[in-house]
């Protein structure tokens, strides 16, 4: 009885009694959610255009952030470093296409997936070899990202919004919007979507597989860099960041591997819910640390009832 009360009553009482704290929790969940959505988005783009389940997406985040910090440490101005890092990501995209994807065209999905795990390891080993394993500080202020905070006092309480978080949400919105415009309005964007719908048909109307692949991997790299900047600014830059890469996976389960809307909505939902669960149930009842698995278990439960994910279409099986 006591336990049931703790499970079903106390958390909600807590929420209502301290609405300012609840808002704070929701805000922070939202900010994480935005970043999850971004990673998931890079992932969906690659999956749609090449059927590759890119496990390396999370590591690309770390790698991009490390490269950026590395360039800056060499005395290169911050914004020039960003340009250089974009160059490195483009180079990475070309190399991956040339060395890994091209020889593996037509192999079963699982083989390509394994190959991306190979890329993951290569980038981890390589990154640590070049940049060292210790945690670095993101060059937040050099990039001109504001670091203060805005305080509100809703319901007589206190709500603190970090400038950094506001900036990251705004930047994410801009990035996603421009990406959607790119995908829907430009020739190349439509080519990417066409490839996702039907490989063979897209090839037969003259869409170059290689160009599209390099392009989506580069876009994934750009997304990775941006996620890396904002996440790195909050938590420092090191390979410990790869845990957020894993967070993108339940987002994908929830939203569907191919749905851009799904990635965005799924990411936000998971960011919010896992924070709520951790603060109101995880810490008081389970000893905390539930954020490592909550999203996965949530996605698992949702999938049991909707195997196609929240936004996937129902599959009619054929023989």
């Amino acid at each position: 009885m006591e336990f049931l009360k703790k499970l079903f009553v106390d958390p909600f009482v807590e929420m209502v009694s301290y609405p300012d704290f609840l808002m704070q929790v929701l805000w922070e969940g939202l900010v994480s959610g935005v970043l999850y959505s971004l990673i998931a988005l890079g992932f969906v783009l690659i999956f749609r255009s090449s059927r590759i389940f890119n496990f390396a997406q999370g590591i690309m985040v770390v790698f991009a952030a490390l490269t950026l910090v590395g360039f800056h440490a060499m005395g290169i101005p911050a914004w020039v470093s960003v340009v250089f890092t974009l160059g490195v990501m483009a180079l990475l995209a070309i190399t991956i296409e040339r060395v890994v994807l091209r020889p593996l065209v037509g192999q079963p999905d699982i083989i390509l997936f394994m190959a991306t795990i190979g890329i993951t390891l290569f980038l981890i080993g390589g990154g640590e070899l070049i940049f060292g394993g210790e945690t670095k500080r993101m060059i937040t202020s050099d990039l001109g990202i504001p670091t203060g905070s805005v305080d509100f006092e809703p319901f007589g309480g206190l709500l603190i919004l970090q400038h950094l978080d506001i900036t990251s949400v705004a930047a994410a919105v801009v990035l996603v919007t421009s990406l959607l415009i790119f995908l829907n309005k430009t020739r190349m964007g439509r080519a990417i979507r066409a490839l996702g719908d039907d490989h063979q048909a897209a090839l037969s109307v003259g869409i170059s597989l290689r160009t599209v692949w390099v392009l989506v991997w580069f876009i994934a790299g750009v997304i990775a860099l941006m996620t890396g900047i904002f996440w790195g600014a909050r938590a420092g830059v090191s390979f410990a960041l790869e845990v957020i890469a894993y967070k993108a996976l339940p987002v994908l389960m929830l939203g569907g591997l191919e749905s851009i809307t799904g990635a965005i909505v799924g990411g936000l939902a998971i960011g919010l819910l896992e924070k709520l669960f951790e603060i109101y149930w995880g810490q008081p009842l389970l000893g905390g640390g539930t954020e490592t698995w909550f999203a996965f278990v949530l996605a698992l439960i949702v999938l049991l009832f909707r195997p196609q994910g929240l936004f996937g279409e129902k599959i009619i099986e054929r023989v």
Partner: peptide, 24 residues
């Protein structure tokens, strides 16, 4: 030793890709 560890991870990564290409 740290370098060995990093090289090790890198090599395993490269080997996986190599093997997948040569003989999946």
């Amino acid at each position: 030793p740290a370098t060995v560890e990093h090289l090790n991870i890198m090599t395993i990564g490269a080997l996986i890709i190599f093997f997948l290409i040569i003989e999946p």
